[in-house]
Each structure stands twice: as structure tokens, then as C-alpha cells.
Amino acid sequence: MSTVLAADGISKSFGGLKAVDSVSFELAKGDIAALIGPNGAGKTTCFNLLGGALAADGGQMRLGPTDITGWPPHRRARAGIGRTFQIAATFRSMTALENAETALMAADAAPENASNLLDDVGIGALADTPVTALAYGDVKRVELAMVLASNPSLLLLDEPTAGMASNERLRIMELVTGLVRARGITVLFTEHDMDTVFGFATRILAMDQGQLIADGTPEAVRADRRVQQIYLGETESGDA
């Protein structure tokens, strides 16, 4: 299988704190990988390093054969990385359709395809609604339509189900996985909801204190002793 993304020893410190400490992994085409870990483990920083919002202190990143270390976010986007944000970010002065059109323009694609994109994410009927008037679940769908506009090879999804009512979580994840499978897109997502993680990920990366502590199939990671310790809140000393 061909490697879509390779991170090689990427690191980032804030002050004295190593938020991401020499993390290495590779994603193969078609992977739907979940990045999990407790608060402060370094997931968001890791995402920002991959998306280019933060500059890495060290290490290398490759997208396919291309070295993208040091590239600004807009250049990475053009190279094929799409990302969504933990709190869905859309252009609030625009309708759903205009958001999709703008995303297509940004990718030098024909804005006429915007309504198809909205149909793909299931909100074709809401095209002319201002995004400020949409339910949050639909805003997340608009954002998804936007990142699909450039035909990315890799999607970074920062908590795709966060902020959604419980009954909607399953639906959005089914939508996402259906779309990426059909288009052969590789996905890396962070997620807190374990049902979502184990329900959809084909592979799991676990972080703690800035380091990658496990990487493997869902079964293997679930059985990992260190992962269990972190999640069940037992300290190493195991006292009390």
C-alpha cells in the first residue's frame, strides 16, 4: 500500500513543555485512523503541525513523495490536505451554497459544482440558507462539503462529532466514512467518543504526554496496558 502521509520525529514545545515529542507514523492510502489520548496529550498540536498552522521545531512531514515540512497551511491545502476544525469553521457572511462555491474557487475548480457537493453531504435542500441560520450539525456538513471541494488525498478531521446531539453522531460518521471510501481519501481524526472511535476507525494511534504510545488495530490498542492505564485513570504507582 502506498504511503499518503509520513510524519518523522515531529516535535513542538511551548515554553518548556514538550507538547509533541518526536512523533513518527505513516498513513497508508485508505486508512481511517483515529488519534486518541487524554486532554493535553498533544492531539491538537499534532493536528496543527500536520495542517501547517504551527511550525514544527523538528522532524519531517511528507505528503506522498513531497516534503511539506515548513509549508504554510494554504500550500498544504493545495497539495491535498483538507481539514475540519473542532468547532466547525465556515464563512458566516455566506449561505451554504456560497460557502461551497468559495471553497471551489479556492481550489481553482468550477463553482458550478457547489450544489453537487452540498447534495453529497445531504444538505442540498438548504443551499440558500445562510450558515448562521443552520443547525450545528448542518454547519458541520457544510464544512465537510468545503474540504471535499479540492479533492484532497488526506483529510484531517478534528473531532468530527463534537458538539452534535447524540443521535446525529452516528449519522455524520457514516456519511464521512461513506464519502471517503468512495473517493479513496485517507483520514486521520481525533475523537473523544469511544463508540465512534471503535465503530469507525480501521487503525488507532494513542498519544500521552506528547508521545505516541500505541499504534495499531483497534483490538490491539484496546488491549494495550498503557492505554488502559491512561483511560481508567490509574496512576503508575497504583496506590489508594
Binding site: Y136, G163, S166
Partner: peptide
């Protein structure tokens, strides 16, 4: 409640 339209607690 929640943040900026995103539900976080129910």
C-alpha cells in the same frame, strides 16, 4: 450548553 452553537452538555 456549549460553545458558539456547538452543543457540549445536555
Amino acid at each position: 450548553g456549549g460553545y458558539a452553537g456547538a452543543l457540549a452538555i445536555e
